[in-house]
């Protein structure tokens, strides 16, 4: 897949009051690929993602989607483009079942009444498309699910809406070894299905296991964006901790290579 990126940001600046969190950041994500977004705490990963998702408005810079320049003023705009974010705390309602959670806020109805059967069918189809076979029943409450299953439901919820870009904020942070492997497999499958996946992670093993590209933020600047196959483990750690690594990184321009 060597066509242009589906999502591209150029020269993004974002300040909160006197604190400038993002400096002239460039970022892109390609369909069918997993782009890992790495960086130390406070590097601006979450802020960048929230700008993409429309939760924060960018101060200046350009937002391209499928090659078109777009304006994103809120979460609804981002959702309409096909950008979905799965937050770290998942935002699931424990007292609702899997189908109810997946359709929360966007319930399908026929007239006044909820179209339960239709929603259950769509949810089952989506989970099947992701080859998820670990849940017993779609009508079980989310409170009875394991951490990995909850993550799966949250991801399936994001995929349900024919989304094109799915951003995952530390999906494996709270999971055990086996469940982490399960979720990473799912992340890979999303990309193989043609979605552009952005994976925020602190875990270098995860990053190297599934990503095609790595984007490293350092103190609010994009230190480098490179193919995963072209860098080593320690180079990425250097980029995260000091913003540069040999030829790569800040100091060689703003690193926004693809």
């Amino acid at each position: 897949m060597s066509q242009g990126p589906i999502l591209e940001l150029r020269g993004i600046n974002k300040s909160f009051g006197p604190v400038q969190v993002l400096h002239d950041v460039a970022f892109s994500a390609h369909a069918g690929e997993v782009t890992a977004l790495v960086g130390d705490n406070g590097a601006g990963k979450s802020t960048l993602v929230k700008c993409v998702g429309g939760i924060h408005q960018i101060d200046s810079g350009e937002y391209f989607f499928e090659g078109r320049k777009v304006q994103v003023h809120g979460p609804r705009d981002a959702a309409e483009l096909g950008v979905e974010i799965v937050y770290q705390d998942l935002a699931l309602c424990d007292n609702l079942d899997i189908v109810q959670n997946m359709f929360l806020g966007r319930e399908r109805r026929s007239g006044l009444v909820l179209d339960e059967a239709g929603m259950e069918e769509m949810a089952a189809k989506t989970l099947e498309g992701l080859s998820v076979r670990t849940v017993k029943s779609l009508r079980q409450h989310v409170s009875s699910l394991s951490g990995g299953q909850r993550q799966t439901v949250a991801i399936a919820k994001a995929v349900l809406w024919n989304s094109k870009v799915v951003i995952l904020d530390e999906p494996t942070a709270a999971l055990g070894v086996a469940q982490t492997a399960q979720v990473l497999e799912l992340v890979r499958r999303l990309a193989d299905n043609g979605l552009a996946v952005v994976l925020i992670s602190h875990n270098m093993n995860d990053v190297f296991a599934v990503s095609d590209r790595i984007a490293a933020l350092y103190l609010g600047r994009m230190a480098a964006q490179t193919k995963t196959s072209e860098v080593t483990h320690s180079q990425v750690v250097e980029l995260i901790t000091s913003g540069r690594s040999g030829e790569l990184g800040l100091g060689n321009g703003n690193g926004a290579t693809s």
Binding site: P75, Y87, A91, N95, E107, L114
Partner: peptide, 22 residues
């Protein structure tokens, strides 16, 4: 049977999740 009822349960279960769901 209505979306309104579903939203009542959602707000009671996790108000933040409900808010993010629009």
């Amino acid at each position: 049977r209505t979306a309104y009822g579903r939203h009542i349960y959602a707000v009671g279960g996790n108000a933040e999740a409900a808010r993010r769901a629009g």
